[in-house]
Structures are given as C-alpha cells and as structure tokens.
Amino acid sequence: MSFELHRPRSLDEALTLLEKNEGAHVMAGATALVLLMRQGLVRPSVVVSLRDAGLGGIRAESDGALWLGATTTIREAEESPLVRSFCPALAEAFGHVATVRVRDQATVGGNLAHADPAQDPPPMLLALGAEVELAKAGRKKPRRIPVEELLVGLFETSIEEGEILTGVRVPPLPAGTRATYVKFLPRTEDDYATVSVAAVGRVTNGALMDARIALGSVGPTAVRARKTEAALREVALMPGGADNGRLTAAAALVRDEIDPLDDIRGSAEYKREMARVWTERAVRSLLS
C-alpha cells in the first residue's frame, strides 16, 4: 500500500482536502483502517487524518443534548463524568468496546463511520435516538441525520463523497428515562458480542412507556426492533417480578426482526434465541 497522508489542522482544511482528492479516505483513531489496509480490503491513494483537526470534545448543549465530537476517544467517552451523568448505560456501552488499548486509540466518530455491526456504541446510540452531523465543503449548515439512517449496510454508511462526520448528538432524555446495554459474551470479554441489546424507556407507575430496543451483532447493521418496541408499550411486571405473559410475548417478536449469520459465535438460530433471551432480560432490568 502506498498513499499520500494529509494531516489538516482544522475541519475546513480537511473538507477542502476531500473536495480536491476524490476517493480519499478519512482516518481518525486508525485502529480499523490500519487493519483494513493490511488485509488489502482498502487501498487508498490519499488518506486524510482527522487527528489534529480539532474535532474532539464532549459537551452539554443548551437544550440538554449531549455532543460527542468525532475524534473523542472511546475511553474519553467511557470515563467522561458528563456522559456518565447523562446516561450511565451509554458510558458502559463505550466501556465494553474491545480492550483499554483500543479504547484509548479508537474514536467515537470512527466507530460509527466504520459501521461494523458488532460494535457496542451503535445499538446504544440507536436506542437513545442519537443523530450525527456531516460537514462538507461549501455547506453552511451540517447535514444532520439519525444514526439509523447513517448505518445502511455491512461496513457501509450513507456518508457522501466529501463529507466528514463531525460528531454525534444524543437528544435530551425525558425525566424518568431508564437505559441499559447488555452484551452476551460467552467466550472472552474482549470478543465481539454474540448478541447485544440496548433498551431505553420511561417507566411510569411500574409500566414501560415508549420503549426503544436496538440490537448489535445480529445482522448487517445495528438495528432497531420496532415491532418488539410496539408490543412492549405499557408492559409491566406483576408484584414479585413475575411476567403476565406480555413481556415474554413481546421479546419473542425480536427473533424475526433480526438477520443473523451462522459464524463461530453460534448459528443464526442460536443467535435469534439469544436475542429473545437478552431482550427480555434487558427490558426486565429497566422495570426492576
């Protein structure tokens, strides 16, 4: 592999470089791109590093939203008091990524732009209704799209030629919102999940309102489970924590909302069953 590397010092400079170099690849933490280049899956002629472009940082926005700049490392997000107080489950989802070494190098924006369906942050960000901002040379206001519209296929996003993902915005959470992220890892803790489930919802008088469920490692992208969400509306547990049948029935719907593959982490059928089991557990933990 032989490429020209650019190290712009600002977003504007980076956008101009992309405009001038069609097909250029953007590199942030580099953990994914280094491996893809070594495997020969990506052979860029121009690489634009965002490392010094000033896109890092975490802040609370005036409307109560949380902003995570694209080159914020996963570990910065995991350890940020701002992220933790905004939504502890989001900090935990970042903390589940690979190992501390990867978390210290890989970035929040790179993790999304890589569109690996087995990553931990995307299902949590989907369930939280997060959006990303995409800047482009000559564009006055960035394009803002839901994470759900960003992730279109296996390692495939809707980012257009010349665009740079500048960060992710998590909208303010209504009072009483609970969130959880569970990762089923039967092998080792630094492995990809067999199945992961993010669940978010308000709980009022013991009943789950407006549930949002998203899963990872069960198809070409992280995915929302909308039929399951609809069936979970106002689900509550009986005294003592028993289910009256509605939670079990709703969780069973998730089996048909995913598209897992047979691989070393289990057969597709096994993953459907584990998705059902872990969805039920995630919702149960929101209610208890």
């Binding site: 590199m27 580099a30 953990t31 280094v34 491996l35 590093s49 570990r75 501390v100 070494r101 990867v102 210290d104 190098q105």
Partner: peptide, 9 residues
C-alpha cells in the same frame, strides 16, 4: 495511555 503499537501510525 496504553495502546497497541502495531495499530498505531
């Protein structure tokens, strides 16, 4: 901070 030098440009 620890990183893998085999992945680090």
């Amino acid at each position: 901070r620890p990183i893998s030098s085999c992945l680090y440009p």
